[in-house]
Amino acid sequence: MTADASTTAVRLGPDAARRYKASRRPVWMEKPSIPMQGLKGIVLLLVCIAVIYPFLAVIGTSLSSQQEIAANNGFVLFPTQPTLTAYTTIFAGGIVTDALIRSIGITLVGTALSVTLTVMMAYGLSRRGLLGGGFFLMTALLTMLFTPGIIPTFLVVKELGLLGTYAALILPTALSAFNLVIVRSFMMGIPSELVEAARLDGAGDLRILWHVVLPLSKAVIAVVGLFYAVGYWNAFFNAMLYVDSDKWPLAMVLRQYVLLGSSIDASAGAEIAAPSQAIQMAVVVISLVPILCVYPFLQKYFTKGVLTGAIKG
């Protein structure tokens, strides 16, 4: 006991001292001082600049001409004469447009399938007393510790006849053990009285899942859905292994143009060729836009779903 606490105990008495000590808030809950608030503001400003500056540089470079890019050593933050030549060249060639459509289809189908499998398996494993539940849960968790190598996975995909198909980009990664654990933990936190009441009314497991569990699990489903969508959207390695170039998603096309320095062929009749650097940055912008459009609608569920799924159960 500190000197201040001892003085308080003598002055107020033991019972009053205990109440005084219990009423005091922890240090981290106290209002920070003005210098500390200023320091936090400066740190937050620096972090925002570090995040926003590269994004603005990519957009500015994609809207710049060859001369302006060369004059600014390859990156332009605010172009003096913005031009959409890079974007018109990309969409005129058709390669990025087709890849964009394929990526949207793969992401939508893959996310729907992955969320469905994850929710159904998580609901089953969250029910206490399930026969073999521990075995199936341990099997799923082992995949987080011991992942198959490239060659075994390739041989399995080949034996299943999935080579050269879009299914090879979805099925090998259809279920994530990490997302399964999050959803299962969330569902275990749902009051069992609600499930029992629905079962007494004659509802089966599918009806309980649809009418009771899913409405209460919107937050965690939105979170894992975003995880799956981002994973499918950014995946390029499976495309490089399993499908030909005419079925490449946008992430693989982006890799070709940005890392390998390939150029995009414009359609016949195109007279103005955009600079290579501008085309590379334009492809990066196109690949970012869909995720940036979806994330704001799911952001309010993100923190709630992850934290609740991590601490319950």
Rank of each mutant, 00 (worst) to 15 (best):
P249Q: 02
P82W: 00
A310E: 01
T118R: 01
M144S: 14
Q67M: 06
L241F: 15
L77E: 07
Q277G: 11
L194K: 04
A17K: 04
H211P: 00
L160I: 00
I151F: 11
S185K: 01
S176L: 01
K312C: 02
I272C: 00
A278E: 06
L254Y: 08
V213N: 00
P148C: 01
F297L: 11
M138Q: 06
C293L: 15
L169F: 10
A274S: 09
L142Y: 10
A70S: 15
F91L: 12
T8Y: 04
V51T: 06
Y123D: 05
V253F: 13
R102L: 12
T7C: 02
N238H: 14
T89W: 10
V109Y: 11
I69T: 08
W233K: 13
W210D: 03
L160T: 02
N73E: 12
N72S: 14
L56G: 07
M240C: 02
R255S: 08
S62F: 03
A168I: 02
G161Y: 08
T139I: 07
L117P: 10
I170D: 03
I101E: 12
A3Y: 01
A168G: 07
F236E: 08
N234R: 14
V230K: 15
L46S: 15
L131A: 13
S65T: 15
V285T: 13
D205C: 01
P148H: 01
A239N: 09
R128D: 11
T61N: 06
M144R: 10
I69V: 12
T61L: 06
L108S: 09
L254Q: 14
V212C: 05
I279P: 03
T89P: 00
T118F: 00
K300A: 01
A50E: 05
R207K: 13
R184M: 00
Q66V: 03
A167N: 09
S6K: 14
T173W: 10
A219T: 11
T97R: 06
L155M: 04
I90W: 04
P79M: 09
S33R: 08
F227K: 03
L160S: 02
I151C: 12
V224D: 00
A17Q: 05
G309L: 00
L171V: 13
L194A: 12
A229G: 14
V109K: 07
S185D: 00
L206T: 09
P275M: 03
A310K: 00
T61P: 07
V58N: 02
R11D: 05
I106L: 10
G189R: 02
P152S: 13
T143Q: 04
R11V: 07
P148T: 01
N72Y: 09
T173S: 15
W210E: 04
V283R: 07
M144T: 15
Q256I: 02
I151S: 13
T111N: 07
L175D: 06
M1K: 07
V58Q: 01
L298R: 05
L117M: 15
G164E: 08
L108G: 03
M240T: 10
K218F: 11
G105I: 09
R11G: 09
Y257V: 15
G94A: 07
V119I: 08
L206S: 10
S276V: 04
A17V: 11
P249H: 02
A219L: 06
F136M: 12
L39P: 12
